[in-house]
Design a protein around this nucleic acid. Structure first.
Lengths: 227, 227
DNA sequence: CTACCGATCAAACAAGAGTTTGAGCCTGAG
DNA sequence: CTCAGGCTCAAACTCTTGTTTGATCGGTAG
């Protein structure tokens, strides 16, 4: 319904003492941005609608007006981000298949699975927030979100099929289990888990080099698939 | 303070229409049991004190009387279960070290890490609830719980040191990262994730055989360490 | 017997949540 | 100009939450 009907409204004179730097974009976009950030940083249940609207510099009723409810706002962000992530992964998997005559090796399949979220986590990409949001959705999401995550296996099935094709010698269920283990590796990439790892290693693992981390993950996962 | 002072009270006549089968144990134990179960099944924020006391068949004020607050109750369960789990893991690691002249191989170290939570998940052990509770605490726990998880690396350091000893050829930070990946494999063992895996595999992975799952996890993780 | 004390109870409390309301503002078409 | 309609606003509303309160029960030491 309310899709891309953003009125131009280049500058509406600041109604009150706002520093004028926050009122450039439309209200809906402001809410989406602030909500994703706060949800990713502090968790879904720990962020109230008032927190979001205050951060966005908009009125409290905006959330219900533009999205219907807090849960619908959550689901909207969730839907957008998971769609983007899955599209990116599918694109990489497709390219890998093209490069290898339709039979990409395990490492290239796993790269298509690992690289998008890792690359989003780089500071320059500025999408680390989105990654954390998606990861959070998996454990503390709404029932609707968890239902979607649980049943929507369409994009995951492509990876499962590709892995089965790359390792026809393995029983299918074994491939599925190993894919499950790989997913666990990704889902564990949360701020809190990194913190513990850094403490454990006395700072030796504090690296921001995404390429190096990707290589580590691929080495480990590929080794697991070769067992 | 209030420790093991459970009055015998074999049977106090049921005060109301309770079916008399729930009122055998002391109130505190009833609350602990019901709270752990509900928290594990539905999440910490989705369970209210009223839910707990209703399930336990006790008065609403019992939680605050016996534990001080809902968060304190949560932390009490968390403290007990993590202590048990870490003790069990440390025991297995110690035994593995004894069997291998103080230098257990990677697989035996990982077995000490993986086997306790997996064995608790068997239906006959009846501690699957506790495992789910601990896993939940990692993602949706109180700030105090997350702080404890983040900084209490003492029991994890034993495993890190053992792994460094088993693979002296690897850089230490590489070992730490791979341990991190293994932890991710465990933390992903949630009901919802299993559901998705079972759907993905069309039921081919629906097995309750803990030994087989443990072998799968050890194969994969050991292969990852051999990379 | 009596006075105490921990445990339990129903009831109320205060704070915070998400949501709704109705008035007002601004823009753009007729 | 006028008016309709999308949007924003402050304020109120309703519901649930965790917590507190004061009475009451039941056993026990003096």
């Amino acid at each position: 319904m309310t899709e891309a009907t953003n009125p131009p409204s280049p500058e509406n004179a600041g109604p009150d003492a706002a520093p004028d730097s926050e009122r450039e974009a439309a209200t809906k976009a402001q809410v989406l941005c602030a909500a994703e950030r706060l949800f990713a940083l502090h968790g879904f249940q720990n962020v109230s609608v008032r927190d979001i609207t205050a951060e966005a510099g908009v009125n409290l009723a905006s959330v219900n007006y533009h999205f219907g409810s807090k849960d619908a706002l959550l689901f909207e962000i969730f839907r957008r981000r998971t769609a983007e992530l899955n599209r990116e992964r599918a694109r990489m998997l497709h390219e890998a298949a093209d490069r290898h005559a339709g039979k990409p090796p395990v490492r290239e399949i796993l790269r298509a699975l690992f690289e998008p979220p890792l690359r989003w986590s780089t500071p320059e990409s500025g999408r680390g927030i989105s990654v954390q949001f998606i990861i959070r959705a998996r454990s503390e999401g709404t029932e609707a979100m968890r239902e979607a995550l649980r049943t929507d296996v369409s994009h995951l099935r492509r990876f499962a099929d590709a892995l089965v094709g790359a390792r026809p010698d393995l029983p299918k269920d074994e491939v599925y289990w190993r894919l499950h283990f790989c997913l666990g590796m990704i889902h564990n990439n949360r701020f809190a888990e990194f913190d513990r790892l850094h403490i454990l290693s006395d700072g030796a693992t504090r690296e921001s080099d995404v390429e190096a981390l990707l290589k580590r993950m691929l080495d480990f996962a590929e080794g697991g698939f070769q067992a």
